[in-house]
């Protein structure tokens, strides 16, 4: 079980949205983790520097939040094989799909981009189906 956290989740979501707006206003770029991560994988994108800085900030923030007394619930309820297999599929999928929940789900949907709406609908359906199969068909 995990706690239902509507207020923290709304606040956290608003911060994710705020970072997308700030990245557009200041850098003119989409705050999609797929594009930002891909840009720092060799062969490097010509714009790898701001992306590396963004990634460093993203990694540092939860650490800093904990250091000032914030509590972050974290638990990985799947075996290592699922992390490896799932991660590999995530990498393949975001490359061909052109984005993940941050890029398509927040930035793309906020721009009412039809491809992003289709991508989000597709990955939500397959994620719901996958969890159902893993937990209630195979695991049930």
């Amino acid at each position: 079980m995990t706690d239902f956290t509507p207020f923290q989740s709304l606040l956290g979501g608003a911060l994710i949205g705020l970072s997308a707006v700030l990245l557009m206003a200041l850098h003119g770029r989409i705050a999609g983790m797929t594009g930002i991560l891909t840009g720092v994988i060799p062969p490097l994108s010509p714009e790898w520097r701001w992306r590396a800085a963004f990634l460093a900030g993203a990694v540092a923030a939860p650490l800093l939040y904990q250091a000032v007394g914030g509590h972050i619930a974290f638990s990985v309820p799947v075996p290592t094989l699922a992390l490896v297999g799932g991660g590999f599929l995530v990498g393949i999928g975001v490359h061909f799909g052109g984005g993940c929940p941050s890029g398509h789900g927040i930035c793309g949907m906020a721009r009412l981009s039809p491809p992003s709406v289709i991508a989000v609908a597709t990955f939500m359906i397959t994620a719901f189906a996958t969890v159902f199969i893993v937990r209630h068909v195979i695991g049930g």
Partner: peptide
């Protein structure tokens, strides 16, 4: 490519519970 990629991403997300962001 878009729909297939998104579908595969969703499967991986559902298996691991992590997304890149």
């Amino acid at each position: 490519e878009l729909v297939g990629g998104a579908a595969v991403f969703g499967i991986g997300w559902g298996i691991a519970g992590f997304c890149p962001g």
